[in-house]
Design a binder for these strands. Structure first.
Lengths: 150, 150
DNA sequence: CAAATGTGGTTCGTAATAAGAACTATAACT
DNA sequence: AGTTATAGTTCTTATTACGAACCACATTTG
């Protein structure tokens, strides 16, 4: 009944509320663990990367001085480490500590649980389908907004 | 190559980056129009609703005093109006002005354009499929996080 | 090699957003 | 009529992000 008028709406009209719903969940999990949404995201990025400050800032769409503060606080809490780069004595690599890694594993589980009421709406094969569609959608993104002319 | 290892990842692992990418786009459009992400969202909600302050706050997951400030600023800019409720002399209904409505139409177009590089990745029928899957996913949400036991 | 310019990061001060506490006014209950 | 609950606002405060200015090292140029 309620969904019918949505037939005329576009994909974007579904993407946006999905994004807000997802962010609300992440925000809540962050709050429960005393993490800002941004720091939550940083931990996720660091799980499989070891970027420099500037790369991290670029990836997040933030200024580098914002990163300094963010990483300084995270380091003070023992979640991340700053190690000087070999290639460039000015530069630092940022990476997760074991504690940060463990924390993110728990956070990841919490995300699965918190989003389960939503994902549960779909059959396993529809979940896989949705996941594949989303990854295809994200292909031009790769952590950056695509140059706006493609 | 790059996508293959994602076969083992869950739907949530695709939803989260999609949400961040979408929010980045919205954030940029907001910034270009001098709107916070939250106010952008409020305008979207008001497009087809006429809620009270408390409902709006609840819908957004914010405290009501935060709404007071947000709506006060938006009203000062001529985007929304506060009209006293008939039913309850304490309450106010919040609604879009014509200007607010027009602005949101333009914002909506900007969203379509800005996300086009992503949506373009999918065929029209895959877009429709994705849209349907997302609406199904969101069914338990309805503007609120679902009670965590369903 | 020395000077000039560019790049990686940090610090400091400031603006915007959201929450907590305290308050006013109206509504609802007993 | 008196108590309690609800709707909204104001004021203060914490957090987050940015702009400007800065230092240290790297790279380019003469």
């Amino acid at each position: 009944m309620k969904q019918d008028h949505r037939t005329s709406e576009s994909l974007v009209d579904a993407l946006v509320p999905t994004a807000f719903a997802t962010m609300a969940v992440l925000n809540k999990i962050g709050a429960e663990n005393d993490l800002s949404l941004t720091l939550l995201r940083v931990l996720g990025i660091l799980r499989d990367r070891r970027p420099r400050m500037a790369e991290l800032a670029d990836h997040l769409g933030l200024e580098k001085q914002t990163m300094s503060g963010l990483i300084a606080r995270a380091e003070k809490r023992g979640l991340v480490m700053r190690v000087p780069s070999n290639d460039d004595r000015r530069a630092v690599d940022v990476l997760l500590t074991n504690e940060g890694n463990d924390l993110f594993d728990r956070l990841h589980d919490q995300m699965q649980d918190a989003l389960a009421p939503l994902t549960r709406q779909l059959t396993i094969s529809d979940q896989r389908l949705l996941k594949d569609l989303l990854w295809r959608l994200l292909e031009p993104w790769e952590g950056h907004p695509p140059a706006n002319g493609g």
